[in-house]
Design a protein around this nucleic acid. Structure first.
Lengths: 232, 232
DNA sequence: TGTACATCAGTGAACGCGCGTTCACTGATGTAC
DNA sequence: TGTACATCAGTGAACGCGCGTTCACTGATGTAC
């Protein structure tokens, strides 16, 4: 009984996955704006109206892709942490996370653009995406937290005007970290994606050539900016 | 003769400007992907085919908007430099440039997205856009150069692996600056737009609240990262 | 185990829409003699 | 200064296309008794 009922459900999740997979293929080919339910259905050999059994509208399909993309890059970041060699110090683990995010972005430029590029016009992400969106940041925070615990986190300074912001931010995100670090962290978080976006979106063209070395160095400087040090 | 001939030409530039203006309005309303020649023509009371007297295709109109956007933000940056108080030190001038870019971005989010967001799918910017695209970076470089001339630029360090990249980069962009600075500068350049993009694209939602103070602090840290100091 | 009924995936046709681009044309504005 | 011709902006119709979404339907799969 549970197996037969499972059969229908299994079919459903399989078709849902196939739809998303094909949608991702088209995303990679033409970008988010041109993603079309009809084209996806066509490619899957279905009639376009059949997709409405799985996604109530095009926007819902987009939302699913966005959530998946956040989860994918978040998973990459978490895996980088989990797979770091046992003797890796805080800086090495920080770099591993940054590099895994960059690698994912370069491997999935259109999915990256979907979540870190221009917002899709007329579309506003529902609350649901907030949690997966935080995974990369949380992976980095956990490195800072480990460093803090083992006295490997240098204290950074912030202007007095940012004190209240720092307290609030630390309270929301990482109550166990110094508030100053939380502010530096937010800046570094945005800056990391600045480095990656410029590379993925083509702004390094004719500017930065040795991109691996450049990124490694820049990501290391970001670690320094939040106070993550080499010695563990 | 030159006045009459000027009349036709003046009309032409006026209509061209009106088309771009309306296109920018629609860009702000619906985003680049939905920019439509027909809608622009309709709004201007023209027939859609008439636009082809001014722009040979939709892509050419987009290119014009992109060039204009780069010029607009570049002009904002240059104006910030030009209007800085005479007694402003290097750091103050650096901050003025950064803030003018941010202000422009927040005031023109869709034009900003056009140039610093996801690349428009199927569209590739012609060489023509390269020069206006460089204006913001050049304004910042000029601050660093002034600082260097007046011994207000601290030397930064880079790993040996980046030496060749640094030499090449400095040679291309700023032969009068130390190569190490050129590398730091490229990173800071990408990071500045990371800070701005996250704000414009909504990633600070429920994260960073006091955005003015936050940006001012972060931009100051970027100055430090390239070695631009307070004392002039 | 067998039958009556409910659920649900997928069909096919249709609605109404907007798009980029081409083309032959009209009529006004500019140019050359 | 006047006239013949060339240039050019703008028109209106048309081509061919794809889109999101709705709706009544068929037929297979699952459920309850």
């Amino acid at each position: 009984m549970s197996t037969t009922r499972g059969a229908r459900e299994r079919a459903r999740t399989e078709v849902t996955a196939a739809i998303k997979e094909e949608a991702r293929r088209q995303l990679a080919a033409d970008g988010a704006a041109k993603l079309s339910l009809r084209a996806v259905a066509r490619e899957l050999g279905m009639v376009s109206s059949a997709l409405y059994r799985y996604f109530p509208s095009r926007d819902d399909l987009l939302t699913a892709l966005i959530t998946d993309a956040y989860d994918a890059v978040g998973e990459a970041a978490e895996a980088a942490l989990a797979n770091a060699p046992a003797d890796a110090d805080h800086l090495a683990r920080w770099l591993a996370v940054c590099m895994s995010v960059r690698r994912w972005a370069l491997g999935h430029p259109h999915e990256y653009a979907l979540i870190y590029g221009s917002p899709v016009p007329g579309y506003s992400a529902p609350q649901t995406t907030a949690e997966p969106a935080a995974r990369v940041a949380l992976a980095l925070v956990s490195v800072a937290r480990d460093a803090h615990r083992s006295r490997g986190l240098a204290l950074v300074r912030i202007p007095g005007a940012l004190r209240p912001e720092a307290e609030r931010l630390a309270g929301d995100v990482a109550p166990d970290l110094p508030p100053e670090t939380a502010v530096a962290f937010a800046a570094v978080w945005a800056q990391l994606f600045g480095l990656i976006s410029f590379e993925v979106f083509g702004h390094y063209h004719r500017v930065v050539e040795d991109r691996d070395a450049f990124f490694a160095h820049a990501a290391g400087e970001l670690a320094r900016a939040v106070g993550v040090l080499t010695q563990s």
